[in-house]
Simulated scan of single mutants.
Amino acid sequence: MLNAQLAQADRYQADRYQRFADLAVTVGDAINAIAGLNPAQRTDVDFLEREFIPALGLNDELLHEQPPELAPNFGKGLHLWQYPNQLAPYLAWLARNSSGVSSYMEIGCRWGGMFVLVTEWLRNSGADLKTVIALDPIAPTPFISTYFDLLQQQAAIEPIYIQDFSTSPLVGAHVDRLKPDFVFIDGDHSLRGALQDHLLVRSHARIIVHHDIHSQACPDTTLLWKALKQFEAPSFDTFEFTSQYLSINGSFLGIGAMKRRSAQM
């Protein structure tokens, strides 16, 4: 039984890789769409929520957690595993807080859609990116490989992919060397794992963002965010993006941003 389950998982992984290889052109389309926004559109939450984000393409997994009204956008484009009504105000906040960001790290990039979106959002919102780091135990996906190729051709940004767990000494060495100043944490969703990821980057990062901070499916990361808001209050201001859809029975996802108070708001 175990061998059959492993074989099925391998087939699923292979099928997903092929699917994203077929959709690799989406990466270039997304880059152009993000670059085409004007400053007013980058902070227009209603526009981002209702038009721009759905058009980038949404996730098609665990659809019981997804609002059915967004079904036409499932399984397309960047496959963003985000609620547009959470991601939109987060992107608007990010557009106002990108200045001074020189390095971006994503812990748990998976298929890579969010990594592409946030990196390009930073580039087009005033950040002076020098390095971007994607970390995940799986091999680089077609989205990541395509995006890294484009970065190397078009931008003076060093792209780094680390296929490993965030607890490995190699990752710790990379963090100590690169000192990422903006980190998105979406890896191990256990309380211990997510806390370790926070502590891994805390001494360097001036912006730390946690995912799944308001999710009944992720009680550990939800609890961790509640604790971090209190423990980190002396050093960080916190911002929450946790709106839900009435068509969903329950609360899911949620984005929590922390910005070091010594940094200019």
Score class of each variant (00 low, 15 high):
Ala40Met: 11
Leu62Pro: 00
Asn85Pro: 00
Trp111Gly: 00
Ala155Glu: 13
Ser145Lys: 12
Ser215Ile: 05
Gln66Leu: 04
Met114Glu: 10
Gln196Asn: 10
Leu199Val: 04
Asp128Arg: 10
His174Ala: 02
Ile138Trp: 07
Thr131Trp: 11
Ser251Ala: 14
Asp29His: 00
Pro84Gln: 10
Ile162Gly: 02
Glu65Ser: 04
Leu56Ala: 03
Gly256Asp: 12
Glu61Ile: 06
Lys259Ala: 11
Phe165Ile: 07
Gly108Ser: 08
Gln196Phe: 02
Thr167Trp: 04
Asn38Ser: 08
Thr167Ser: 14
Leu80Phe: 07
Gln196Gly: 02
Val209Tyr: 10
Val118Cys: 01
Leu58Tyr: 09
Thr141Gly: 07
Ser262Asn: 08
Asp10Ala: 15
Ile34Glu: 01
Cys109Ala: 15
Gln163Cys: 09
Tyr245His: 10
Asn124Cys: 14
Phe239Asp: 10
Pro137Val: 15
Ala217Tyr: 13
Arg202Ala: 09
Phe143Asn: 00
Trp81Asn: 13
Ile162Ala: 10
Asp15Cys: 02
Gln163Asn: 03
Gly77Trp: 00
His64Leu: 06
Ser102His: 15
Asn59Phe: 02
Ala92Trp: 01
Ser168Arg: 04
Leu80Ile: 07
Asn38Pro: 00
Ala217Gly: 14
Leu62Gln: 12
Ala55Lys: 06
Tyr161Ser: 01
Asp212His: 14
Ala139Gln: 12
Pro68Leu: 07
Phe231Gly: 00
Ser247Ala: 14
Leu228Pro: 03
Ser168Gln: 08
Pro89Met: 11
Ala173His: 04
Gln196Trp: 02
Thr26Val: 15
Asn59Pro: 00
Ser98Asn: 02
Ser166Gln: 15
Gly250Arg: 03
Met1Leu: 13
Phe115Arg: 00
Leu117Phe: 07
Lys229Leu: 05
Leu48Arg: 09
Ala155Cys: 12
Gly112Leu: 01
Met114Phe: 09
Lys226His: 13
His211Gly: 13
Ala127Cys: 11
Ser103Pro: 01
Tyr147Leu: 01
Val175Pro: 03
Asp164Gln: 08
His198Ala: 11
Leu191Phe: 15
Ser99Cys: 04
Gln41Trp: 05
Ile213Asp: 10
Gln82Thr: 04
Phe143Arg: 00
Thr242Asn: 13
Leu195Lys: 11
Trp121Ser: 08
Gln41Val: 06
Ser103Ala: 11
Arg19Leu: 11
Pro68Tyr: 06
Ala88Cys: 07
Ile213Lys: 10
Ile185Leu: 15
Leu23Arg: 08
His210Asp: 12
Gly113His: 03
Gln154Ser: 13
Gly250Phe: 09
Gly250His: 11
Thr242Pro: 01
Gln230His: 10
Asp29Met: 00
Thr221Trp: 05
Gly126Val: 12
Ser243Lys: 12
Leu62Gly: 03
Arg42Asp: 07
Gln152Pro: 00
His198Lys: 02
Val183Lys: 06
Phe148Gln: 08
Pro234Glu: 09
Arg19Thr: 08
Ser99Gln: 14
Gln154Gly: 01
Val209Met: 12
Phe231Val: 10
Gly108Ile: 05
Gly250Ala: 09
Gln41Asp: 13
Leu224Ser: 09
Pro89Gln: 04
Gln196Met: 04
